[in-house]
Design a protein around this nucleic acid. Structure first.
Lengths: 347, 347
DNA sequence: TATTTATGCTAAATTGATTTAGAGTTGTTA
DNA sequence: TAACAACTCTAAATCAATTTAGCATAAATA
C-alpha cells in the first residue's frame, strides 16, 4: 500500500489542534496579538505548523487577497548579456522579499509586448518592470485603469510623467564618450545607430551625439550619423563602412556604437575588412559587457550601472506595491567611461 | 466620478446572458458539445466573452484544478550565457502552450537549490526543469512523493534511473576534442577541470579525458589533470600554468578547458603571461559561447546543442505533465566540434 | 444584582473558477 | 397513458485561504 503524502492545509492544523481555521490563519499571519489570541495558543499553532511542514497555498491566498508575490519583467531579449545580468540582480533583490519573476522576451515587437502585458495581468502579477519597445505610452493606460504598479526602465516617455521610471543619462554618457575621443585626437567620429526602433534611449543617444559634435566645434552635422538596419545589422554595417572609409573623400577615424549589439557586429566587420582597431579606426561602445574585456583589442565602452538600475527598479516597484497612491518618481543614474585598448592609438 | 474598470469574471457573462456559471464554464472550456449545450447558446457565450474581454482568473482556476501553467526552472546562474540562451529557447517553446517560467539561480549551492525547489512546489508549478548541483539524488524523492513532474538537464544521477533526463554525451565530446588536438600534433594536453563541484557532467568529462588519453597511447596518466578552485579560478590557473609550463621539465602544449568559464579565465591568464595562442599553447573549450568567435584568436570549442537540449526538455516536461504515469526517458544528445584559430598552429 | 467590559475565540461569507449529480421539458415508444 | 429517453441546462460543492461580524465566558463596575 502506497502512502501518498497529502498536501497539508490550514484545516489540518486547525483540526489537529481543535481550533478554528480563522485562528490558525490569524496567528500565521502575525495578527494573533492584534486579535487577542493567547500567547500559549499562538505557540501551539506555530509549532504544529512547523511539525506538519505547512506551507500556504499560493493559489488560495492569491485568489482571496489578489496578491501573487510575483513581478512581471518585460524586456527585449533575455539572452542579451545586458539583460541577463540585470535579471540576475533583480532576482536576488526580489528574493529577499519572497518575490519571484515571470520573465518575458519581446524581441522589440510592440505587438508581442502588448500581448505579454495582458498575459501577465491575467496572471495577477503584483507589479511590472518594463523595458518597453512601444513608441508611445498609450498601452500604459490599461495598467493605470487596473491600478497595476509598474516601473519603466531603460526607456521612458517624455510626455507621460505619471509613470515611475529609472532613467540613465544617455545624453551625458554620449558626451563623455565624444569628449574622450576628441581628447585622443580623433577627428571624424561616426555614430552607428539603429532603425526602425523608436525608443527614447536610442533617440537620446542620437541627440546627444549631434549636440556633442556641435559643442566641440565639428561641423559635419549628421553626415556621419548612420542608421543601420536592426534586422540586418552586419550587411548594413558592411555597406556603410565601405562608403565611409573607402568611397567618401574623407574617411572616418572612429565609430561610436549605439549599443553592445552594434559594437560586436562592427568589430566583426572591421576584422573581415582587415582594418586595424584602433590604428585605422577607433571603436567605442555604449553599453559595456564582459566580452569587451576579452577581445583583442579590448573595447572601450560607456558603461551603464546595471546593478544600480536593477536594484532601484525592484526597490521602487515594492514601494509602489506597498503604497499605491504615491507620487511618481524618476530616478536618474549616470554612466561611466571605461577606457580600454580600442580607442588609444599605439604610439 | 471615476469609473473603475471592474475585473470581468465568469459570473458577469452568466448574469448578462441569464444562464448559469456552469454553462459558461463548460462552453469556454470547449466542453459545450460534450454536455449538449446548443450551438446557439454557445455562440452567445463566446461573443459575450469577447465583448467583455473576459480572461479567466489564473488563481481561481489554479486553485480548483491544481494547475498553474507555470514551469519552474532551476539553474546555477542565469547570467551565464550558456543558460541565458537556454532560457530563451525554453521560453519560446513553452509560450506555444501558454506556459511561463519561474526562473531561479542557485549559484551551485545545494542548500539554495533545495530551498528553491520547496518554494516552487509551494507555488504549485506544474513541473520542474532542473540543472542540479546536488551530489546525490535524495532531494528528488520529495518530488516523487508529491508526484511533481521534473526533467533533469545538464547533470544527472547514475543510480537514479527513474528520473527523466536530457543528457549530453560528454565522454564522446571530450574524445572528439582530444582526437582533434592529436591530429594537430599537440602532444601534452592538459585538462583544466574544477573542484569542489560534484556533478555528473564534470566527472564524465574528466573520465572522458583520461580514457581518451589512453586510447591515443599517451602515458602521462592524470599528471596533466588540473583541478582548479572554482571559487578562485584565475589565481588557481596562474599557479598551475606557472608549474606546467615553466617549472616542470616538459611544458604542456594544449589546454582543454572543462567549461566556458574556465576557458575564458585561461585566456585571460595566458594573455597576462604573454603566451601566444595557439603557437605557444593551444586552447580548446568545452561549451561554445558567442564570445569565442569574437576573441583574437577565436577559440575552438566542443559545442553543446543548446537549442536541442532546451526544446527536448520542454517537450518532455509537457509529456509528463499530460501523462504522469509514463516511463522515464533519457535522451542523449551529441556535441559538435567547432574549429577556430586557437587550436591551429600558424605554419 | 444587573450591567458593562475584556478576553479569547469562531461561524460563515468570500474570492472565481471547475465539476458532480441531477432537474425540467419535450418527444417517443409500448 | 405511463414509462422512458433525449435534450438542454442548473444548483451546489469544492479548491484553501482571508476576513467580517459577532458569540461565549469571566471579570469588573455600578
Amino acid at each position: 500500500m502506497i502512502m501518498k503524502k497529502q498536501k497539508i492545509s490550514l484545516k489540518h492544523i486547525a483540526q489537529s489542534l481543535g481550533v478554528s481555521n480563522t485562528l490558525v490563519s490569524l496567528v500565521l499571519n502575525h495578527k494573533g496579538d492584534e486579535h487577542g489570541i493567547s500567547k500559549e495558543t499562538q505557540k501551539k499553532v506555530y509549532s504544529k505548523a512547523e511539525e506538519l511542514e505547512y506551507m500556504p497555498s499560493f493559489m488560495a491566498r492569491g485568489l482571496r487577497t489578489g496578491r501573487s508575490y510575483t513581478i512581471g519583467l518585460i524586456l527585449s531579449d533575455i539572452s542579451n548579456p545586458f539583460y541577463s545580468k540585470m535579471v540576475r540582480y533583480m532576482e536576488d533583490e526580489a528574493a529577499k522579499n519572497e518575490y519571484s519573476f515571470l520573465i518575458c522576451s519581446t524581441d522589440e515587437s510592440p505587438e508581442k509586448e502588448k500581448k505579454t502585458i495582458k498575459m501577465l495581468i491575467d496572471r495577477q502579477v503584483d507589479g511590472l518592470i518594463i523595458s518597453s519597445s512601444q513608441s508611445n505610452p498609450d498601452f500604459l493606460s490599461s495598467l493605470e485603469d487596473k491600478k497595476i504598479p509598474y516601473v519603466l526602465i531603460d526607456r521612458f516617455f517624455e510626455d507621460y510623467p505619471q509613470a515611475n521610471s529609472i532613467y540613465v543619462d544617455n545624453m551625458r554618457g554620449i558626451y563623455k564618450g565624444i569628449e574622450y575621443l576628441v581628447s585622443e585626437k580623433y577627428k571624424r567620429i561616426a555614430m552607428f545607430a539603429i532603425t526602425p526602433i523608436y525608443i527614447s534611449s536610442i533617440q537620446e543617444r542620437i541627440d546627444g551625439y549631434l549636440k556633442s559634435l556641435k559643442s566641440f566645434g565639428f561641423d559635419y552635422g549628421n553626415e556621419l550619423l548612420v542608421e543601420l538596419d536592426f534586422h540586418n545589422l552586419k550587411q548594413s554595417i558592411r555597406s556603410s563602412l565601405n562608403y565611409l572609409i573607402i568611397e567618401s573623400g574623407e574617411p572616418i577615424d572612429a565609430i561610436f556604437a549605439i549599443n553592445n549589439n552594434v559594437a560586436v557586429a562592427s568589430m566583426q566587420v572591421l576584422r573581415e575588412m582587415n582594418l586595424n582597431i584602433p590604428n585605422d579606426i577607433a571603436l567605442l561602445s555604449f553599453d559595456d559587457i564582459e566580452l569587451f574585456q576579452l577581445t583583442n583589442p579590448s573595447i572601450s565602452a560607456i558603461s551603464q550601472p546595471v546593478e544600480d538600475i536593477s536594484k532601484a527598479a525592484v526597490k521602487r516597484i515594492f514601494e509602489i506595491i506597498k503604497n499605491p497612491g504615491s507620487d511618481p518618481e524618476h530616478k536618474t543614474l549616470q554612466t561611466e567611461l571605461i577606457l580600454r585598448e580600442s580607442t588609444q592609438k599605439n604610439k
